[in-house]
């Protein structure tokens, strides 16, 4: 039951972009093309899942027993930054084109608040290692879902006649708001299904 709740919650009900407004910077930054959005999604899914797993291990076996809760932020950022670096090194080798297209947004996953957010939420809900990892994966899938839908929308902008004042970021943020309204519809999904 809890597993289903976490997955549904992460992907739809508490979607990071549309319901919690986290990780908006790369969301707006690299959603111009479906291809780069997919690449970014892959990177975020890897980083968020791995970061959730490793930080929960760190929390449960090191930070909590030693009473080092105050080190949480810096220790988590260390973990996240390392994974981002790993993705960067790997991507430079495996997909140089994508590496170039993502540009500064790739190292900026480090400061993507959704990544730190999910690890902090894991602590707040006191999830175990498995549930934390699952929560990270679900959150990342939700973020990816958002950016992929959004990239599809933005690709169609090119065919449209957009007023000059709305071009670029303004329209991106307005569209994000409208999609967020649509995602509000999922709010009672869980209650409705499992009554």
């Amino acid at each position: 039951m809890e597993i289903i709740a976490i997955i549904l919650g992460g992907v739809l009900i508490n979607n990071f972009v549309f319901m919690q407004y986290l990780g908006l910077c790369p969301f707006v930054g690299v959603s111009r093309q479906l291809e780069t959005a997919l690449g970014m999604s892959g990177a975020v899914i890897f980083v968020m899942t791995m970061a959730s797993a490793v930080t929960s291990v760190l929390e449960i076996y090191v930070l909590a027993p030693l009473g080092l809760g105050y080190l949480r932020t810096i220790a988590y950022i260390l973990v996240i930054a390392s994974f981002v670096q790993l993705v960067e090194i790997f991507m430079k080798k495996a997909a140089p084109g994508l590496y170039k297209a993502l540009g500064i947004y790739l190292p900026l996953i480090t400061t993507n608040c959704a990544v730190l957010g999910v690890t902090m939420l894991n602590v707040r809900h006191s999830y175990g290692i498995f549930l934390s990892t699952l929560n990270g994966l679900a959150g990342a899938l939700g973020w990816s879902l958002a950016i992929i839908i959004f990239a599809g929308i933005r690709e169609r902008w090119r065919l449209m006649d957009i007023p000059k004042t709305l071009e670029g970021f303004p329209l991106a943020l307005v569209s994000t708001g409208l999609m967020s309204l649509a995602f509000l519809g999922f709010q009672n999904l869980f209650k409705a299904v499992f009554r």
Partner: peptide, 27 residues
């Protein structure tokens, strides 16, 4: 001392991991 050790050791561990990765995926 625990705080220093925790951050130091985890930093070292990730550093080694990244070092190995950088060597393995060198462009």
């Amino acid at each position: 001392i625990e705080a220093i050790l925790t951050l130091g050791i985890s930093g070292l561990a990730f550093g080694v991991l990244l070092g190995v990765a950088a060597r393995k995926f060198r462009v």
